[in-house]
Simulated assay, not measured.
Amino acid sequence: MRNIFFLFSLLSFVFFLFSCNEDVLPKPKAYLSLEYPKKSYEQLKLERPYTFDISKSTTIIDDKNNWLKIKYPNLKASIDITYRPVENNLKELLTEAEKLVFKHAVKAEQIIPKDFMNSKNNVFGSLYEITGNAASHLQFHVTDSTNHFIKGSLYFYAKPNYDSILPAVAYIKSDVLKLIETTKWK
């Protein structure tokens, strides 16, 4: 019985010694390769009390009350634009816009505000970048403080998974910045 145990141990050791002739390495992580359309902008062609530049690769859906939906069909996303005239209710409009931003605080990891001011075109506003698995990852508002108020929100038509859609959020964020920077009132 001892000889069998010794023979089994010796064979196991020899098998172990000669079976591991190659290092086993883990597979490298794969990175999603997304290709986005080259940036190209044009001025909004719809008759509105405002105008701004939009990406040529988007589809515009006209809505009532001077509202818009800027769709990114390839990214399954849209920027929903709402317009409201300011009628001595600027504080109410700003409070409502901020409530909608901070409604995402439950799922958000961080909310990063950025203020904008373009005195030449009388455009003032804020952009909020919402990190984490929130329903909307970018929200913004712009106003002239006396007559016009625009609020916009970015939505994806998919379950929120921030790590997966982060490149798309960054791509659309540059379009939102262009929209804010080129806003003019009529």
Score class of each variant (00 low, 15 high):
residue 60 I to M: 02
residue 6 F to Y: 09
residue 72 Y to I: 04
residue 162 Y to G: 00
residue 123 V to R: 06
residue 161 N to T: 13
residue 41 Y to E: 06
residue 100 L to Q: 15
residue 67 W to T: 15
residue 2 R to E: 13
residue 48 R to V: 02
residue 17 L to M: 07
residue 152 G to P: 02
residue 34 L to C: 13
residue 88 N to L: 11
residue 16 F to E: 03
residue 65 N to G: 04
residue 138 L to G: 09
residue 72 Y to Q: 04
residue 73 P to E: 02
residue 103 K to S: 14
residue 124 F to N: 08
residue 37 P to T: 10
residue 146 T to G: 08
residue 60 I to K: 09
residue 2 R to I: 14
residue 6 F to R: 12
residue 90 L to K: 03
residue 86 V to E: 03
residue 97 A to R: 03
residue 30 A to K: 15
residue 153 S to R: 10
residue 31 Y to G: 11
residue 112 I to K: 12
residue 40 S to P: 06
residue 153 S to E: 11
residue 153 S to Q: 14
residue 99 K to M: 10
residue 182 T to V: 04
residue 142 V to A: 04
residue 146 T to P: 07
residue 79 I to D: 06
residue 122 N to A: 09
residue 17 L to H: 09
residue 94 L to P: 05
residue 68 L to G: 02
residue 181 E to R: 12
residue 15 F to L: 10
residue 126 S to V: 08
residue 173 K to G: 06
residue 43 Q to P: 13
residue 165 I to M: 03
residue 10 L to P: 05
residue 33 S to G: 11
residue 14 V to Q: 03
residue 48 R to E: 05
residue 107 K to P: 02
residue 8 F to C: 11
residue 131 T to G: 04
residue 155 Y to F: 08
residue 186 K to M: 06
residue 68 L to P: 00
residue 3 N to A: 06
residue 103 K to D: 12
residue 122 N to F: 07
residue 73 P to G: 00
residue 62 D to H: 08
residue 167 P to A: 02
residue 46 L to W: 07
residue 47 E to T: 05
residue 80 D to H: 14
residue 77 A to Q: 01
residue 66 N to E: 14
residue 169 V to W: 01
residue 59 T to P: 05
residue 49 P to V: 00
residue 40 S to M: 10
residue 108 A to Y: 02
residue 104 H to S: 13
residue 83 Y to N: 03
residue 179 L to M: 04
residue 140 F to E: 00
residue 105 A to K: 13
residue 137 H to Q: 15
residue 140 F to L: 10
residue 52 F to C: 07
residue 135 A to V: 13
residue 70 I to M: 04
residue 129 E to I: 07
residue 145 S to I: 14
residue 70 I to W: 01
residue 24 V to N: 11
residue 131 T to W: 03
residue 41 Y to L: 05
residue 14 V to D: 11
residue 64 K to A: 15
residue 22 E to I: 13
residue 133 N to F: 00
residue 184 K to A: 10
residue 12 S to L: 14
residue 26 P to T: 11
residue 91 K to G: 14
residue 25 L to I: 09
residue 74 N to L: 12
residue 50 Y to C: 02
residue 20 C to T: 14
residue 35 E to A: 15
residue 132 G to K: 01
residue 60 I to S: 03
residue 77 A to K: 00
residue 68 L to D: 01
residue 43 Q to D: 14
residue 173 K to N: 08
residue 179 L to V: 05
residue 179 L to R: 03
residue 182 T to C: 01
residue 85 P to V: 08
residue 126 S to D: 10
residue 175 D to V: 02
residue 36 Y to D: 06
residue 136 S to T: 10
residue 111 I to G: 01
residue 17 L to S: 09
residue 127 L to M: 11
residue 55 S to C: 09
residue 58 T to H: 02
residue 120 K to F: 06
residue 135 A to C: 07
residue 8 F to K: 07
residue 50 Y to D: 02
residue 80 D to A: 15
residue 82 T to S: 15
residue 82 T to D: 15
residue 48 R to L: 06
residue 79 I to R: 04
residue 89 N to K: 06
residue 65 N to D: 10
residue 125 G to I: 00
residue 159 K to S: 12
residue 169 V to R: 04
residue 2 R to M: 10
residue 173 K to L: 03
residue 185 W to V: 05
residue 153 S to F: 05
residue 64 K to H: 15
residue 95 T to C: 07
residue 47 E to K: 03
residue 86 V to T: 10
residue 75 L to A: 12
residue 87 E to V: 12
residue 137 H to A: 05
residue 86 V to I: 08
residue 115 D to Y: 10
residue 107 K to E: 00
residue 101 V to R: 00
residue 186 K to G: 08
residue 10 L to N: 00
